[in-house]
């Protein structure tokens, strides 16, 4: 049953990526996907291989939908995931707000890299997307800090 759940999530993410890639950067897709990948915290060999396979698949999908080179996508995705895990694990996780800002900065850097590499241009959909992200961030801030 859990695998069926994963399958549905992957299908949903693919559809979301196809929609987002039409006009904008994959903000929601990558956010949800990395949230999903957090479950494959590599405690054993099996979860590690699943993680590697998932990251490879994500790189292929990004390369396809954003017309990028596969090597570049692999480098981007793996580097992002490595830095994200590094910042999240030991060195910079002294306080939660610092961790949040680092994660956000990394994510923004990844999005900007995709934006420039795939030659996208600013449009109204991107602004709508940015507005939605802003609303989401405000909502999360309120929820986490119990304002």
């Amino acid at each position: 049953m859990i695998y069926l759940n994963y399958l549905f999530q992957v299908v949903f993410l693919l559809i979301l990526l196809s929609v987002e890639s039409t006009l904008a950067t994959p903000i929601f897709t990558l956010y949800l996907l990395f949230k999903l990948l957090d479950r494959f915290n590599p405690r054993d060999d099996r979860s590690f291989y699943y993680l590697i396979a998932s990251l490879l698949l994500l790189s292929f999908c990004l390369a396809l939908f954003y017309q990028l080179g596969i090597s570049i996508c692999i480098v981007l995705v793996f580097l992002y995931y490595y830095l994200r895990s590094l910042f999240g694990s030991k060195m910079f996780s002294k306080n939660f707000q610092q961790w949040q800002i680092l994660q956000l900065s990394l994510f923004a850097a990844l999005q900007i890299a995709i934006f420039f590499l795939s030659g996208l241009s600013l449009n109204i959909f991107m602004l709508v997307q940015g507005l939605l992200v802003l609303i989401l961030l405000i909502y999360r801030t309120i929820k986490i800090n119990r304002l």
Partner: peptide
């Protein structure tokens, strides 16, 4: 193993 897989993919792409 992960490094070998990535290098293999890079090679195929190259």
């Amino acid at each position: 193993f992960a490094t070998v897989v990535l290098l293999f993919v890079f090679l195929l792409d190259f």
